[in-house]
């Protein structure tokens, strides 16, 4: 069977499209690459969806943590503490358990026990907590002058936040936020590994990698392939985030722009 045929059969297997049965003997390198690559669709889906949705909640959490009102600040602090303080492993366990119980209360919760929604919610909360902490750190270190200048222009409330505070916060938080994106992307491998069941052998990259490792009893082929895919996607994340970073800092002179980028990890 040619590799092209394999791609047609298994390229979208993780979504349930193509051949129903997984290969069961005489595993080729091509099958390894195609199936594990197919599983990456889920890792990318979880990564992007959680990151995009989490971004908004994170901003809200950071602002709430800055609030002088305890009614806003306390819940945000607790939320961040709970999700940053416990392993994702345990969060998945409790979320799955909770969703199962909710399901018996009302059919509305039916899709929540499936990974595409249930696990996404956990990852969404998780990344929101981590990013919220990063953004909070950035908010605290916004130069006083920026805010004073905004005041002098007569800005306040929403316009001041939208045009001055928020962009500065992003600029400061961006290097650490890039790291968070990488961590989150890696964390997506936990979804089927320990959290949620895999239906009809539709799983993520790690699911297929361990399928091969289990069938061939040789961990030295599938896992390095998985690692290869992840390094590739991690580099892609670093590239995309780098582009955003230079756009965020496009108003700065070149010399200073570089200096900002030289301080990764300071906040996270």
């Amino acid at each position: 069977m040619s590799c092209w045929q394999t791609i047609q059969d298994y390229g979208l297997r993780s979504l349930g499209i193509g051949e129903r049965l997984l290969p069961r003997s005489d595993f080729t390198l091509c099958e390894h690459f195609v199936l594990i690559g197919s599983g990456m669709i889920w890792n990318v889906y979880f990564g992007i969806m959680a990151l995009v949705t989490g971004f908004f909640l994170a901003t809200a959490l950071a602002v709430a943590r800055m609030s002088p009102r305890a009614a806003l600040r306390k819940p945000a602090e607790w939320f961040i503490f709970l999700f940053r303080g416990s392993p994702l492993f345990i969060q998945f366990f409790f979320a799955y358990f909770l969703f199962l119980n909710l399901k018996s209360v009302h059919p509305f919760f039916d899709p929540f026990t499936a990974a595409w929604l249930g696990a996404l919610i956990v990852l969404f909360f998780n990344t929101a907590a981590y990013s919220g902490e990063i953004f909070y750190g950035a908010l605290r270190s916004i130069p006083k002058g920026d805010v004073e200048a905004a005041d002098a222009y007569g800005m306040s409330g929403w316009p001041r936040f939208r045009r001055i505070i928020w962009p500065t916060m992003l600029r400061l938080a961006w290097p650490a936020y890039t790291n968070e994106a990488i961590f989150l992307f890696h964390a997506t491998t936990l979804v089927f590994f320990s959290g949620f069941p895999a239906w009809q052998q539709k799983g993520d990259a790690l699911y297929y990698a361990s399928y091969f490792a289990d069938k061939t009893f040789n961990p030295f082929i599938p896992y390095p392939i998985l690692a290869f895919y992840f390094i590739l996607f991690t580099l892609a994340i670093i590239g995309v985030f780098g582009l955003v970073n230079s756009r965020l800092n496009r108003h700065l002179p070149k010399e200073q722009r570089r200096r900002l980028r030289l301080r990764p990890n300071l906040i996270r």
Binding site: L21, L22, R24, F193, S194, P197, A198, W199, Q200, Q201, G203, Y207, S210, Y211, D214, K215
Partner: peptide, 28 residues
């Protein structure tokens, strides 16, 4: 039908007419 991930039982269900759902441990 539930089965433990990567067992011969899971392989059997995958080939049968039932919908396979795999869990990491037998307990689950």
């Amino acid at each position: 039908v539930a089965a433990q991930t990567a067992t011969i039982q899971a392989g059997h269900i995958a080939e049968s007419g039932a919908t396979l759902v795999e869990f990491a441990t037998p307990e689950e």
